[in-house]
Each structure stands twice: as structure tokens, then as C-alpha cells.
């Protein structure tokens, strides 16, 4: 019981990180119908930016952890947004309205570029960082097994919830959100009604990249080690999460992320660590066999 509770806590934390990345995938997919393969790498860039920022702040003598975290969050999100915007501008916008596979290949190319860029500029070795928020609270003790809720996990879950709340407000209440939803429904019609679709799409990438950067910071805090390859692994998981939840659906992305996180953690805890990814992917395949459009996805109505 205690063991399961501990896994539940870990799974939710991990799921939150996946959910944040998955939102970026699903948002871009909803509007322009492409898999943004470089998104996982934007997440990785975000994690590196966070590390650089935290080390820089420590060097400047800012030791207050909440302040450092807040500054890092803003810094990483801002720079990663710039990356997201640039990637869209360079690799995807020229291919708007082109056929489906061209942006996909372009995205794979961009992903390789970002990954190699970080590899050559930061080195290929794994970068460790000491824990910022050590300690935690002991929830219960059952037969010698103590259930720990670390401050780090609390911080991750709270930050994610706040970021998601802001994001939901942005999508449902602001005029930008309205344009985004209009573009998602019908890009051409939205353009005809006077929405600057190019700007909306750019901003979608910017927001997605900012969320990915937040996820990158969370990842860095949670695991304490990053390398240039984390983008691919986390990206594939997050994309799986987005598809599982029904691609194009924002709540679906978060639900999918939580599910993937929980499956991964529980499978590692009770069966085998090596096959945790196989478990996550198998669940995806099984869910898609019975629900071909994911959990919250809309049925793809085909008109002839």
C-alpha cells in the first residue's frame, strides 16, 4: 500500500513533465496538422538553458532558491520561445500548404540540428547538478517503508499546475486563444475572417516552446542529470502521451502524459525497469486498437 502510494506520487510527478511537453505537440498538431519532431529537442534545449541559468545565478551570488527558480523559469522559457519561433520560421513556414511529409522531414532535420548543436557546444557528456530543494515530508510509514513526498515533487506539481492554469486561461479567455482555436477549426476560414494566421501559428510555437522549457527545468530539478539525448526519449514519450490522449485535444495531452508517467513508474516498480518503455508503447498500441483516435480525440470524419 505504502509502496504503491510512493509510486503514485512519483508517477504523477513524471506524468506532469510529460504532460507539459505533450501540450506543445498536440497544440501544433491541432493547428497545422504536423508532428513537430523538434519539440523534444526544444525541451532538451530548455533543460540546458535552465542549467546554465541556475549556474550563472549561483555565480552571481543569488542563493535564494525560489528567486533563482523564478528567474530561471523566465529566462529558459524566454530563450526557448525564441528557439521555437526560429524553428517555425526557418523550417516550417516555407512549407506551409505543402504536402504532409515535407514538414515532417524538415522537422526531423531541425531535430538533428538542435541535438548536434547542443552536443558540440555543450559536450556529449552527461551533466550532473546538485539537488536544489533537498528534503521533503514523510507521509506515512508502513512496515519500515517510508513514503516520501520530496519538496522537489511538490514544487514540480505546483509549478506545472500553475503553468497549465495560465495556459488554459490563455487559450479559453484571451483573444490570442480565440484565434488559436479558430485556426485549429479551420485555418483558411480563420484567415478569411481577418485572423493573422501566420502570427497565430508562430505564437503557438512560442507558447509550446515555453511550456517545453518549463518541462526542461522540471526534468533538470527532478533527475539532476541531463545530456543532449534526453530530448528524443522524452519527446517520443510525450508524443505518445499526446496520441494516447487524442492528438489535438489539450486536456487529452495532460491525461495522456499522466497515464504514460504512471504506467512507466508502476511498471518499473512491479515488473522490470528495462521494459518500462515497452510497457508504455504497448499500452499505446492497445488503446489505439480499441480507440483509434485516442482517449479524448475526435473521430476523424471523412467526407467523400
Amino acid at each position: 500500500m505504502a509502496y504503491a502510494l510512493q509510486q503514485l506520487i512519483n508517477g504523477v510527478t513524471l506524468g506532469m513533465i510529460y504532460g507539459l511537453i505533450a501540450v506543445g505537440y498536440t497544440m501544433v498538431y491541432g493547428i497545422i496538422g504536423m508532428i513537430n519532431f523538434a519539440h523534444g529537442d526544444i525541451f532538451m534545449v530548455g533543460a540546458f538553458l535552465s542549467m546554465i541559468s541556475l549556474l550563472g545565478l549561483a555565480a552571481f551570488g543569488i542563493t535564494s532558491v525560489p528567486l533563482a527558480l523564478a528567474l530561471t523559469l523566465i529566462f529558459a522559457a524566454a530563450i526557448a520561445s525564441l528557439y521555437g519561433w526560429t524553428v517555425e520560421r526557418l523550417a516550417y513556414r516555407p512549407l506551409r500548404g505543402s504536402f504532409r511529409l515535407a514538414p515532417l522531414i524538415s522537422a526531423i532535420g531541425m531535430s538533428i540540428v538542435l541535438q548536434t548543436f547542443v552536443q558540440v557546444s555543450q559536450g556529449a557528456r552527461v551533466k550532473p547538478m546538485e539537488a536544489l530543494l533537498p528534503g521533503g515530508v514523510q507521509l506515512m510509514d508502513q512496515g519500515g517503508f517510508a513514503v516520501q513526498l520530496s519538496w522537489m515533487q511538490v514544487a514540480i506539481v505546483i509549478t506545472t499546475l500553475v503553468v497549465l492554469a495560465v495556459f488554459t486561461w490563455l487559450v479559453t479567455r484571451t483573444s490570442l486563444g480565440r484565434s488559436m482555436r479558430a485556426c485549429e477549426q479551420d485555418l483558411k476560414m480563420a484567415g478569411l475572417l481577418g485572423i493573422d494566421t501566420d502570427r497565430t501559428i508562430s505564437l503557438t510555437f512560442v507558447i509550446g516552446a515555453a511550456l517545453a522549457a518549463v518541462a526542461g527545468l522540471m526534468f533538470l530539478l527532478y533527475y539532476g542529470v541531463i545530456d543532449f539525448y534526453i530530448g528524443f526519449v522524452a519527446g517520443v514519450k510525450a508524443f505518445t502521451a499526446a496520441v494516447l490522449g487524442g492528438i489535438g485535444s489539450l486536456p487529452g495531452a495532460v491525461i495522456g502524459g499522466l497515464l504514460i508517467g504512471l504506467i512507466e513508474v508502476f511498471w518499473s516498480a512491479y515488473f522490470s525497469v528495462q521494459y518500462k518503455d515497452v510497457a508504455a508503447f504497448s499500452i499505446l498500441v492497445i488503446v489505439l486498437i480499441f480507440m483509434p483516435t485516442g482517449i479524448l480525440g475526435r473521430a476523424d470524419v471523412e467526407k467523400v
Binding site: A102, S106, G109, L114, T116
Partner: peptide, 21 residues
């Protein structure tokens, strides 16, 4: 050497942008 993949990725993007088909 290490920059080869960088060129490779950039070439992918460039070729796709120039000749999407």
C-alpha cells in the same frame, strides 16, 4: 567530424524547403 550531423540536419531542412516534392 562532430559538425557533420549539423550539416546533415541543415541540409535536410534546406532541401525540403527548396524542393518539398
Amino acid at each position: 567530424a562532430d559538425y557533420r550531423m549539423l550539416v546533415f540536419g541543415a541540409a535536410l531542412v534546406l532541401i525540403m524547403v527548396l524542393r518539398p516534392r
